[in-house]
């Protein structure tokens, strides 16, 4: 046991390592073709959102010539396009450029959907960790509360909350946290109930580690696989929710460009002027598809090893 002093270079596990650990599974996606398609779609919309001011040719709120068809898709109802302005996807009933609104709308949805998901996860993880680790009455109270919320059909809950408290960005985020937090809690709780029986948790308990340490350091990191998959799926759901709320007129207040809202404003004219409604629908569907494919790719990889 003559120990020569340590000559190993041991890098301190800093922020970089932690980050790599957290997003590690996403990096693995390149092994799944389906996941690659998903991440490409999401990346596309993220880039569009970031560079919106550079991409959008017009002010999304400025009114120009109304009811213009896309130059490449003339249909009978549209006024003939005698104006020089080029509207890639046409203009809506108020003469706003659909393409510019779409580009700026990407910003809205890509800010609020991840923000709401993140908040919901924070709440859900804390609740789930406590319920699963402490069990007993803590679990009982939290689980009954979750049961109560989850017994509402999701959309009914949203409509009740937003109709009662009014439509605003903050209220939408709060409503999403309120409605999806319990679902996340159930998943986390299930994982924790399983992980807490592991011997490394018993080992941590037998050396007297505090409860918060065991929950955050010993248990939570090992639950990250299923949680990342679920988070991707849930990002999709939240995007749908924001879209549906916009569609029902309960979304982000106009005139801000919001995909759901754009569909809502123009749907009554969709049969005559489909270009005003179809493009936001395509946009939101591709983004959701991106999240779902990403989730599927991640799940495939996590099942593989």
């Amino acid at each position: 046991m003559a120990a020569p002093s340590a000559d190993l270079a041991l890098p301190a596990p800093g922020f970089g390592a932690a980050l790599r650990k957290a997003i590690g599974p996403i990096g693995l996606l390149r092994e799944s073709p389906v996941g690659m398609v998903g991440i490409t779609l999401v990346a596309f919309w993220v880039l569009v959102a970031i560079f919106a001011p550079l991409i959008a040719p017009y002010d999304p709120l400025a009114t120009q010539d109304p009811f213009r068809c896309p130059p490449w898709w003339q249909h009978s109802y549209c006024p003939t396009n005698e104006v020089d302005n080029f509207y890639l996807l046409g203009t809506d009933h108020l003469g706003r450029d659909v393409f510019s609104r779409l580009v700026w709308g990407a910003r809205k949805v890509l800010i609020y959907a991840p923000l709401a998901t993140l908040c919901a996860y924070t709440v859900g993880i804390v609740m789930g960790l406590c319920a699963g680790y402490y069990r007993g009455w803590t679990d009982n109270i939290l689980s009954r509360f979750a049961d109560l919320i989850l017994s509402f059909p999701v959309l009914v809950l949203y409509i009740l909350i937003i109709a009662h408290f009014g439509a605003s960005a903050v209220n939408i985020v709060v409503a999403i946290v309120f409605a999806s937090g319990p679902g996340i809690m159930r998943i986390v709780r299930g994982l924790v109930l399983d992980l807490r029986t592991r011997e490394y948790v018993a080992a941590a308990e037998t050396r007297g580690e505090p409860a918060w340490w065991i929950m955050l350091v010993e248990i939570l990191p090992n639950a990250r696989g299923p949680l990342i998959v679920d988070a991707c799926l849930r990002l999709g759901y939240v995007t749908i929710t924001i879209g549906v709320l916009g569609f029902l007129g309960l979304g982000l207040p106009p005139p801000d460009p919001d995909w759901g809202g754009m569909i809502n404003e123009t749907r009554s004219m969709a049969i005559s002027f489909p270009h005003m409604t179809v493009f936001p629908c395509i946009a939101i569907s591709t983004l959701i598809l991106g999240f779902n494919l990403m989730a599927d790719g991640l799940r495939e990889i996590s099942l593989r090893d």
Partner: peptide, 26 residues
């Protein structure tokens, strides 16, 4: 089948309503 299922669940109802209406009516 799997990819088809992911595809269809990714299109929210309001969007598929628009697509279907555009196709069958317009």
């Amino acid at each position: 089948i799997s990819v088809t299922c992911i595809g269809t669940t990714s299109v929210p109802e309001f969007a598929s309503a628009v697509f279907i209406a555009a196709l069958f009516v317009f």
